[in-house]
Each structure stands twice: as C-alpha cells, then as structure tokens.
Design a protein around this nucleic acid. Structure first.
Lengths: 214, 214, 214, 214
DNA sequence: GATGAATGAGGGTTCATTCAT
DNA sequence: AATGAATGAACCCTCATTCAT
C-alpha cells in the first residue's frame, strides 16, 4: 500500500479487499460532496467527514487530492459509459440509433443526477493555472466524446437516411443540448424528462431527416 | 459611504463620481480575473492586484466578496441584454424573430467571450451550501430568462407559423444549445461561429416550422 | 505592503516604519528559534509564538518561510561582516592582518554565539532536494567567503612575510578552524576563547611565517 | 522481540539472524538516505522505501526513529574507529603518530564521505528541544573523542618532541580542522585531499615542533 | 477615499507512530 | 517477521475580512 502512492496506475489486482472498498467509499463520499457543494468546496476534510475517517486516511489511499478527483471522474464516466452502451448497442438503423442515443442519454441524466452534476463540476473547475483542463481523459464538455456520435451521423448520411449537414456541428449541437439538461435540472428539479426526451427526439428527427418529396 | 456596507442597494445617485468609477474598475478587473482564472481562483487579492489597489479598497466599495460577484454578474448580464435587445427588436415575423434571436445570441457569444465565460463561471460556482444558486437575478442557466423566448414561440404558434410543440421545452432546448457554445469555445477556440449559427437557425427552423402539405 | 509579496527585492525606503520594525522583530524571533531549536524545528508557528503574533502575520511581512530564512541569513551575515570589517581594516602588515583576522573572528564567535549557530544551522540545512544550497549569497561553509582571506595570504607571500604554501588550502584550513569553534562552544560553553584565539594566532603564525634562517 | 521496544539495549545474542540482518539493512538504508537528503528529510517512509519494506517493519526492529538514528550514528562511529585504529597503532614517535593521525583521518574522510556526511548531519541536527545533543555517545563535534588525541600530544611534550602549548586547545584545533573537511567536500567535491593532508601535516608540524635552536 | 497591519478559519500535505492481524 | 490500515499533530500557506488611521 505504501509504494502505491508513487504511482496510482497500479492494477486493481494488487489491491486488498479492504483497500478497494475504502477507495470506493471515499470516491462515493467525494461524489456526494462535489455534487452538493461543488468541486472547490469539496475539501478533503469534508470528504473525510462524510466517510467517517481522518483526512490522513485519504492520503493513505490516494496520492493527493488530484488523484481522488481523477478517480471520481474516471469511475463516474466509466459507469455512465456502461449505462449508455447497454442501451444503445443494437439499433436497426442510424435514425433509430440516434433516437436511442438521445433517449438513453436523457434517461441517464435523470437517473444519475448526482453523477451528472459531478461530471459537470469537475469538467468546469478542474483546470490548472492556465485554464486548461487537468483531466486525463479525452472528453468533450463534461467527458463524453463526440466521435461516436459524429460517426453515427455520418453513417446515417451514407445510408441515405439523413440529409446533408455538417456532422461535426450537428453532433456538437446534440451533445450541447443533452449536456445542458443537467444544469437545468438543478434549477427545475421536477422537469418532465420523458417529455423533454420526446421533444429532443422529435427535434433532431426534423433536423436530420431527409426532406420528404412533396 | 459607510451605510453602503449595510445594504448594497444604493442608487447610483448617492455615489460620488470617484466611487462609481472605482466600482466599475473593480468590476472590470474582477471580470478579467474570473474569465482567466475561474471564479474560485479569482481571489480578492488577485482582483486588487489587477486594479492596482489594496484588498481593503475593495471592502470600501463592496460589502464583501459576494456583493462584488453579484455586481459582476448583474452588470455583465445587463450589458448582454442591451446587446441582444438592440439586435432583436423589429422582426417581421416570429420565424424571423427566432432566427434573429439565435443569430444575435451566437454573435454575442463570439464577440463577448470573456463575459460569457464569466457568466458561466459564476452561474456554475456561485452556489449555496445546499447547492442552490446564490444569484439574486432570475436567470436560466447563466442568466438569460426563458420567458421572452417562450413568448416568442407561442406567438409563432398562434400566428400559424410554427407547428404544435411544447413551447417551454422548445425554449429550453434553444437556450441550452446556445448556452453550451461558450464552454465549447474554450475547448475549440477556432470554432466557426457563423457556420454554427447557420446550422442552428436551420436546425430550429426544421424543428419549429409547420410541415408543408404534400 | 501587499504588492511586496510578489518580489521581496523592494528597497527599504518603500517600507513603513512599523513594517520595518515588525520584519526586524520577526527576524529576531526567527534567529532565536533557529539557534535554540535548529532550522527544521524552527517552524513559523514557533516564530509567531515568540513574536506574539499569528502565523499569518508572518506571511504579511514575508512572502514565505524561505524569504524569512533568507532574510535571517542575510542580515546576520551583514551584521557579522560589519563587525569584522570594523576590526580588521587597518593592519600594518599581512602578518598583523592575519592575526587581526583570527582574533576578530574568534571574538565574533564568542560575542555572537547565537548568530553563529544560526548561520551554521541555515548553511547546513537550507538545501533543496538535490542537496544543493538554497542560499542566495555566495558563501563558503556557512557564509564567509574565502576570497579575502586567500588574497591576504597571497599578499603576505608576495611581501615576503609568509613562506611558500598553497594559499587556497591554507585559507580553507584557517576558515575551517574558525568555523569549527561554534559547534564546539555548544558542547563546551565555558571554553576560554581568548586562549583559543591566542593558540590559533600562534599556530598559524608558525604555519605561515618564513622559517628563520639558522 | 516484543520487549525490545521497551529497551533498545538488547545484546546481539538475543537477536535472530534475520533480525540482525534486517537491522543492518535498515541502518544501511538510513545512512544512504541521511547522506543524500539530510537528517530532517530522511523520513522513515524514505528509509523503508529504500529497504523495500514497509514503514511498520522499521518499528518492529527499532523502538522509534530516534533509536534507528542512534544506531546509525553508533555503528558509523564504530566503523570509523576501527578504520582509524587500524592505521594509527604502531608509530615510532609521537610526532610520527600525529602525522599518522592526521593522514588517517583525512584518508577516512576521503574514503567514507557518505559516513562523514551522516555523522555531521546527525551531530548537527539531532538535538533536544533545549538545543543539547541527544547523542548517547560521548563525542566531540561529530563523534570522535578528543581524549586520545590530547593524550598523544601530552606524550609528545613529555618526550621533548613537541614544544609547550595547551594540549587541549591544540587537540581541539586539530580535530576542528579535520572535521571541517567533510562539509567542504560537499561544496568542492574535487578537492585534492592528499595535498590537503600534506598541508595539514606540515601545518601542525610547524605548530607543534620544538623550535630548532638557531 | 484608501491603506497598513493583523487575524481566524481553513486549505492540502507529511510525519512518526499504533494496533490488529 | 512483517504488513495493512489508520491516526493526531504539525507543517506551510491562502483566504476573506476587520479595524484603526
């Protein structure tokens, strides 16, 4: 455990059960703290308090605050990715795929509000002195890569399902729309996400589909 | 001047010229600091340094850090509102109005990146211990109210220009899309905003317009 | 006072009376703390306690611990230099000069034991991670340059007063001998320094003087 | 093994082979750490890292940090004593003995720089809160007793080889000169120790020898 | 109208040490 | 014989804020 502090890149295999559990617990408490207080106010003291341990215990399991935050981000992102890929795998056509993509994303945002908050909070505040992100993961906005979405749109165009548009900007628009739901939820907690999802599906269907010949 | 510290709601009339000027200068420096460093790292020491005054001077002009930030937010929002209303006033139809709305917003975001950054930074970090915003202005996402936009959409529907959709969610979608441009600009500074605007106009035209009879 | 923290190289003129006094007081307390506890245990808390102020007060007057220590070292060295140059200026010959040098040094060590301890403590412990000194002053052993001494010896040789020897190593030997007195004093506080000085003068006279022709 | 923690005075006989070996290894690693980083930065974590064991292992073999340091000091001193006594035993006369003493010491310093560094580091930093040494060994400067040297000088005087001088201060001068070589070596690593030794021998021959009758 | 001086609360981090296993 | 896990005390340092001038 001691040598781990030098590099955090150790495989999980070398970790003890207790250690894995504690790390997970600390990550969980950090997620709660960040979601409730925001990244800057989620101090190690606060995380430790929630975990019922001392500040120093955190340093036993993580090299420093940064490593903890990175782990929070990475694990949350991983969890989100699993959620989404479980819901978007097998679609009949690009159009159906896009629909599934939007619906799955909105569903995720509704079901994992805390996690979405955390991703946003970290993505927006975890920067070094020059303002550049300190995130080690390649991520757009708060972590979800644009590439797969853009790829989906291109396939739709090649298949003749979608009309001609710049896939990059369309992808960005879709992601932007989705990513903005999180913050909105903070302000309007009783937002009807199903309706919202339907509207988005509808909206982007109109925006992408080939115009029907009159 | 003394009583100001009790309430910040003094009208400008009661302030001397120097006072007004200093306040403006301090707000400006705070804007720069926040845009460059983010809200949490924009300490009063940093603002004072940029203004060439002492930290204590800030406390002479503002009751505390919070009041300064509120002023930064309010004045930036006011400035943005003026910019937008100057560009969206007189449109021939709701559809044209929507187009002007989108274009003006994107133009604003491109022209006032610093201000947009500041609005985002404050909106995302200026929260209570319970996570609720401490902003005194009624604001969606980073400050622009949804009401006028929703109103515009309703007028369009009543005029028969727009098809039938939930105006509230459509308004939120439009704002969300627009609001997300700022953060994207930080990551992709050379983003072509004109194309982006065109795409959005196109996108929301498809999304709102009445389907043509076949 | 606030901007001073950026660079400590400000001329004294720009400092207030109070500030100068506080700095001096803090330096004094730091000297006491270092002399009594050694550099590593002379924490800022300890210095603050002795000065009757808060830790933060130290940061108001010095950028960080390093700057305080540097100031302690520099001012102590300055003071020592003044003491010595006041006693070694006008000697009739190199031999007399050497005698005065040794006597003045031993006298200084006896009179300023605390300062000598501090110089030693800083010189030996103020290193960065590679073990190299962090001292900004060019200094041998704990701060006194060898150059003047070596120069004195060379002049003595050219004048025919001293015999032929490597001036560099002789200078180092003399300094080494002198510098070692401090630590010895810690162990043997009642050491008779006058006798010690006489012995050293005698010793180095024998070591340097031209052998008398038989 | 358990009782060891109460008293560190266990004789080697009571220790198992593994125990002895580990202790020796830990002492070695501590020596390396202290020589490279200085006493204050030679943390137990650092020592453990170099030994490839856990911090707690150190506490199994030593009651606390202090005992480890004491052992480092004692064993290094013991080793040095053996080196020196092997080279100074059988000299023809006190004068030759003094010469051998100086040469052997300088040779030791050159050959065991690491150990010399360690002795110095410990001697200078291992102090009480009152500034007094915590070393359990009777030691001058960094550990070498003055008594044998002073005895040698007295024998030389009684034998009529040395002139009349205070043996105590002369002994201290010699030791001081020798002890100062270590720190100098850190600053000037390529110092020619042979020349230095010759100079010292020469120097102290001049300083001690009976003046030749003219 | 502005400043100099000081402060208390809290930040992340390192350390030697302990205790159960 | 050794370790994993945890801790309390202390470290240097930054922050917003105050008070007298």
């Amino acid at each position: 455990m001691q040598s781990k502090k030098i590099s955090s890149g150790k495989s999980n295999v070398e970790r003890t059960f207790v250690d894995v559990a504690r790390r997970a617990q600390l990550v969980d408490c950090a997620i709660d703290a960040i979601a409730e207080l925001g990244l800057p106010k989620a101090s190690l003291a606060e995380v430790a308090r929630r975990a019922g341990v001392t500040k120093t215990t955190i340093f036993y399991h993580f090299a420093n605050r940064e490593e903890l935050i990175q782990e929070v981000f990475a694990s949350t992102l991983r969890q989100g990715g699993e959620f989404l890929s479980a819901r978007t795998g097998r679609a009949a056509s690009p159009a159906a795929e896009l629909r599934a993509y939007i619906e799955a994303n909105v569903e995720y945002i509704g079901a994992y509000r805390k996690q979405v908050k955390v991703l946003t909070a970290i993505a927006m505040n975890f920067t070094d002195e020059d303002g550049r992100t300190r995130l080690t993961h390649n991520a757009s906005v708060y972590g979800v890569s644009l590439a797969p979405l853009q790829d989906l749109l291109e396939r739709g165009q090649r298949a003749g399902e979608f009309r001609d548009f710049t896939t990059r900007t369309m992808a960005m628009t879709i992601r932007a729309t989705i990513d903005a739901i999180g913050p909105q939820l903070s302000v309007i907690p009783d937002l009807d996400l199903d309706a919202y999802a339907k509207d988005l599906v509808d909206l982007f269907r109109h925006a992408t589909e080939k115009e029907r010949p009159s």
